[in-house]
Design a protein around this nucleic acid. Sequence first.
DNA 1: TTCCGACAGTGGGGTCGCAAT
DNA 2: ATTGCGACCCCACTATCGGAA
Length: 518
Amino acid sequence: MLLDDVAGASAQVAATRSRLAKRAVLVDVLRRAAGDGAQDVAIVSRYLGGELRQRRTGLGWRSLAAMPGPADVPTLTLRDVDAAFAHMAGLSGPGSATARTDAARALFAAGTEREQHLLRGLVSGELRQGALDALLLDAVAEAAGVPADAVRRAAMLAGETEAVAVAALTAASPDDARAALDAFTLTVGRPVRPMLAQSAPDVATAVAQLAGITDAPAAQVVVDTKLDGIRIQVHRDGDDVRVYTRSLDDITARVPEIVAAVRALPARTLVLDGEALALDADGRPRPFQETASRSATRDADLAASATLTPFFFDVLHVDGRDLLDAPLHERLAVLDQVAAPHVVERVVTSDAAAAAEHFRAVVAAGQEGVVVKAADAPYEAGRRGSAWVKVKPRHTLDLVVLAVERGSGRRSGTLSNIHLGARDPAGGFVMLGKTFKGMTDEMLAWQTQRFRELEVADDGWTVTLRPEQVVEIAFDGLQRSTRYPGGLALRFARVLRYRDDKAAADADTIDTVRSHLA
DNA sequence: TTCCGACAGTGGGGTCGCAAT
DNA sequence: ATTGCGACCCCACTATCGGAA
């Protein structure tokens, strides 16, 4: 199969907003790939899902700045392209960046216009065709003649889509495809996609949301402490322990202390879900940046200078027993038995006030917040299910917009990403970060016009403003910054509303911001 | 007929390792 | 030694489609 076939399909998918029409295009190209064999199905399913098959190629958006013009006639086969990226991914050492760029040039020179567009999207990870993994899974189901639920479940348990697409689409019949999908079961040593949480503004709202979905008579909820670290999924088979991140990256070699902790637990086989973070001598959590630094380093000496402590909040398998479909309260009973010293602190209650009290207590102890969970819900791998709801404290500030950047994609033509400054009592403003979050289309339209009125300079990307417009910003906390002059940056800043009732002189000062550090 | 769950998009700050400068 | 890039870690929020109610 030619890359051009996939490029054409991707363009068709991007050209319609109807998800059914997108799916129909995906189904057609998946069926054609199936006729060309398993390898083409593997490549097509990756590319239509917006990814290359190579996890890291060393090639990114910036490397593609100077690529040659397009070819007139499509000649690239999918296998050519996959082999080219595999080659690039394998390069390392002095001269490798040049060799990689040369290989990319040769590949792009052979690509037609729409093929180049597809390649850019795959390399940058921003295909922007309005369809990624979820719609692709639906298309795989339709193309193979099997229920969408069966494909989705297989992909969640496999931790990936490619193998599932190949199994479903290379089967001789829908019955065979169904059997092939059912063969994807929870396997110790193969990570599953982690269950995710929705969010709520406060504990009472979270409890009320769960009351709507649970069948438990007293509407019991589990209130788990939410730790500010990195998500880990740990598999143990005897002495063999593997540690995976939320994106299912294997980081076992970087975290020997977690391996040791899990080896010491009283079970032969285990699959645990939890969080790892750096603690100080008193057991209080260190800032997220320290956990991130420690978990990212591959240097053994650096790694030894700080340790991560694992805490688990779920168990998916223990000694031959799968627990994915067991209700949470059952899983937690097992978790308490097998992971006792490393279990996240929790409260189980039907009383919203008790849940709120736990939230206050854990935040006072320096933790990030809580996750409120339906006690009778199964583990929904890979889904942002309604059974888990996270709650975190929210801070707000009134800041001044210092500049604004042009938007891209559906925000093209608007002024989108705003630069935020706190008032400096000594004069001027101190920039604390940027945000594009929380804006409705109406706000985007309004601010695009408003900021043109305040414009003092425009370099083609960023428009500098007279510092007059006040905006109310929500954020999760402050972090140390080497990028911004105050040495501080807002974490997860988002717009709540523009404050036309306030002048810049009424905005919060950098001193007020610092007081949030306590 | 209306409602709402799920998805994709639009980007944020920080950290590391590596190759080039 | 410093800088720029790629790859990940954490992520919030809105608009939209189409099935559920």
